[in-house]
Structure formats: C-alpha cells, structure tokens
Design a binder for these strands. Structure first.
Length: 277
DNA sequence: ACTACGTCCTGCTTGC
DNA sequence: TGCAAGCAGGACGTAG
C-alpha cells in the first residue's frame, strides 16, 4: 500500500525520468482515472513540458510550463511506469502520456482507488491538496505544533495519526509500526498521552518511514518506475504488520506474540505486552 | 464541530 | 474441487 515512502519513491522516479520531457499525446483508458472535479481532461497537458514533481503526504503533482498541474493519488494500488512507446500494455492501464523522448508515462491501478486530476496551484499547493497537513519531511513541518494539535484530540491515537489533516503521509502499516516503536496502544485516547509520548510517536513514524524510503530507494529500478509497496524492507524490518502470531521483536525480555485487533472495519497489529493502555 | 461508519474496487486467501 | 465469503485499505461523503 503506497504510504509516504512509496509515494516519495515514485515522485523521485518521476523527477528523474519525466522532468524536462514534453507530453505529446494523452489517453484516458478508464472513466475513474480522472477525478470528477478535475478542472479539465488529461489532454489539457498536450504540448506541456514537465518542470518539477512535488509531493505532500501521499499526494503528488507534476508542474508544467503552464498554470495547470497534474495531481495524482495512488490510492491502494496505483503505479506510475515509464515504458517504451508501444510496449505491451499493463492489465490495469488507466492513463497514458506519450513523451517527447519516445517513452510513455503510464498510470496503472488495479483497484481504481487512485486518481489523476487537472488542478491549479494556490501558494504552491494544488487546491485539491490544500486541506492536507504537512508531512514530517516537509521543511515547514513544525513538530511542536503537531504534538499540540494531537493532544487536543479525544479520539484514539491511531485514528488521529492516520488523519491526513493533522499529519500526512502515515497509513495503516506505518501507524502500527510507529505505535509499536513508541510502545503506545493504538486505542489510547490522544488527549491522555503526554507531549513526550506523542512526540515519540511522531519520531517513530518519521524514522520508520525514513528507513522504508531508504530501502525503496535502493531497490528502485533505473529503467522504469514501479512501486507497489513490496520493497525488500517489508520482508525484513516490519515489527508488527503482517506478523500476527509471531514473536515480538523487542528483544529477549518480551516473549509475547503479535496480535491483531479490529480497528475501523480493518485491523491493528500490536504487541499486547509492550503496548499497554 | 466532531466522530463513526459506509463506499468505492479487484484479486488473493480462507473456509465450508 | 468449487464457490462464496473474507480481507486488504485511502480518502471522502454522509449520518448521527
């Protein structure tokens, strides 16, 4: 599942492979590939030259030599690939942009939770992204402010850190990992935590995402952009996600097994010994 | 204003 | 063996 590290890997890949290229033709292959509130069709970008690729949380956008930007969210299964023009089409190809260098930028999305949109910027951020909070890697992210905002919330801490309007970039996997690292039970009410505990959660989330980013970056294929959330990091370093029934990795003192509990129609994974309420 | 839940979707896994 | 139910999950709309 693309969370911040995966989206950042895609952003960096796009930056490397499409900045400076001009979009020659566009093709939308699925009705939901474009958000209904998009300011226009994909062909808005015909003849546009890519200037830069930006990101906030899990949202990214391409900027061109014109006011319109292409906003993208990968949803659950979205991918970008840069392939040779005319090469075999992927099964779930949703949109295609022919580039000036003989390649194609392809948006692929099996479960169609992802989307593209034409938008414009206000103060450097697309209007569709203006409600999203800064992520921990944003130079203007102010940790003390976020800690303060989190402490005002009456909801469960996991719900709060998944709220993209409070802190962005964290998804279900990194939320579980961060809470395990900070030894906080996901159902703890945010306002009942100390500032230090909340600060520890944010630090843990930042660190776990940094490590994932490093792993994703090294496994990045030079020839095309392909991120499906399955970087080597997932198999080696996750402490709780996908590890229910297995031993807690807290070292020799904790012999507990990772459990799974229901959370908002989904699941949380945690160590019942390390993460008490 | 805030919270909780349903909805969108496809493919893999589980269980009868 | 075959089929249906369960599960995965981000963001948003709506109901309470």
């Amino acid at each position: 599942m693309p969370e911040l590290p995966e989206v950042e890997t895609v952003r960096a890949g796009l930056e490397k492979h499409v900045v400076g290229k001009t979009i020659i033709t566009t093709k939308q292959l699925h009705p939901r590939a474009l958000r209904p509130d998009s300011l226009g069709p994909l062909k808005t970008f015909k003849g546009a030259k890519v200037k830069r690729v930006n990101r906030r949380g899990k949202f990214m956008w391409l900027e061109f030599d014109r006011p319109e930007v292409l906003v993208a969210h990968l949803g659950m299964s979205g991918q970008f690939k840069v392939q040779q023009q005319g090469s075999t089409q992927e099964a779930h190809l949703r949109a295609n942009f022919a580039l000036s260098n003989g390649k194609e930028l392809r948006f692929i999305d099996q479960r169609t939770f992802g989307w593209l949109a034409v938008d414009t910027l206000t103060d450097g951020v697309p209007n569709l992204v203006s409600h999203i909070a800064r992520d921990p890697f944003d130079p203007k992210f102010i940790k003390a402010e976020v800690v303060s905002n989190i402490q005002k919330k009456r909801g469960q801490i996991k719900k709060v850190i998944l709220d993209q309007e409070i802190i962005s970039g964290i998804g279900n996997i990194y939320a579980d990992e961060a809470l395990w690292r900070a030894k906080i039970h996901p159902e703890t009410i945010a306002s009942e935590l100390t500032k230090t505990q909340i600060s520890n959660v944010i630090t843990a989330a930042t660190n776990v995402m940094l490590r994932a980013l490093a792993a994703g970056g090294t496994s990045f294929d030079e020839l095309y952009i392909n991120v499906n959330g399955e970087s080597g990091y997932f198999e080696r370093s996750l402490a709780v996600y996908g590890r229910e029934g297995e031993q807690c990795r807290r070292g020799s003192r904790c012999g507990s097994k990772i459990i799974r509990i229901a959370f908002a129609n989904r699941s949380s994974r945690l160590c019942p010994a390390c993460q008490t309420r």
